[in-house]
Design a protein around this nucleic acid. Structure first.
Lengths: 128, 128
DNA sequence: CAGTATCCTGCAGGATACTG
DNA sequence: CAGTATCCTGCAGGATACTG
């Protein structure tokens, strides 16, 4: 049952693939993380999401807004002021995402150890 | 505290970024999902991970093995037989990943609805 | 300020052929 | 069977200039 649901995800025709990629992708992930902490204007976000270009932040925000994870509020003034924040749905997903990230981060010592022994084996292929 | 930990992840220098990308990436995600269900040989996996090329499966498995998430057992016979399965660490992370995926899948109706209204607004820009 | 438009490049990843 | 090696292409995404 639950397994059937989960397995479906792994067929490429699955429609949730797209959203999953938006969420876990390089900039989507960082943007959701930044927005967890509050409401921000475009350039504030740019500074928080380290290394993102205008283009990619704009693109990422559009995609997340379209998926209903981010709410965009444009106030008609001059100069313009636009605020971004997570929707309820966005917050829910961001929390799970953070959980996964925290788990991975937590296990990094194990991962690093695994990498070292993997690399060591290849570096000294004569050691049977 | 917990927030500090989580926030660190969003700086690009964070070492867990790499592992996270291996886990959530297109093929990593699908491969972990397939391996949740048991032990498989290379070509069995190829069939289960729909659409993956030899090259990408090979590459993905190497990366996941190096990170300590996948265990590779080569039996010295001819023709060769190699089995892949999740390590304990891999299983742990795969479970969380599935959780995230299931959540996203669960919320897809909301996502689709959001998309429709987003698209509708743009299609009829005269409707103020 | 909050973006969009254009140009350009590196590299993910597919196709194909080959190997122990 | 279980891969590796090589060649090739599309596109993610950066840099730069421009706009309401």
């Amino acid at each position: 049952m639950t397994d059937d649901l989960a397995y479906d995800v792994f067929t490429r025709t699955c429609p949730s693939r797209g959203t999953l990629e938006h969420v876990t992708g390089r900039w989507g992930c960082l943007t959701l993380g930044a927005l967890r902490e509050g409401t921000f204007r475009f350039n504030e976000l740019r500074r928080r999401v380290d290394g993102v270009s205008e283009k990619m932040l704009s693109q990422t925000l559009h995609v997340l807004e379209r998926d209903g994870l981010v709410y965009r509020e444009a106030q008609p003034m001059n100069p313009p002021r636009v605020d971004y924040r997570l929707t309820q749905l966005g917050r829910e997903i961001a929390e799970w995402l953070i959980g996964l990230i925290s788990l991975v981060e937590d296990r990094m010592p194990q991962v690093e150890a695994a990498r070292e022994s993997y690399d060591a084996e290849r570096a000294a292929p004569d050691a049977t």
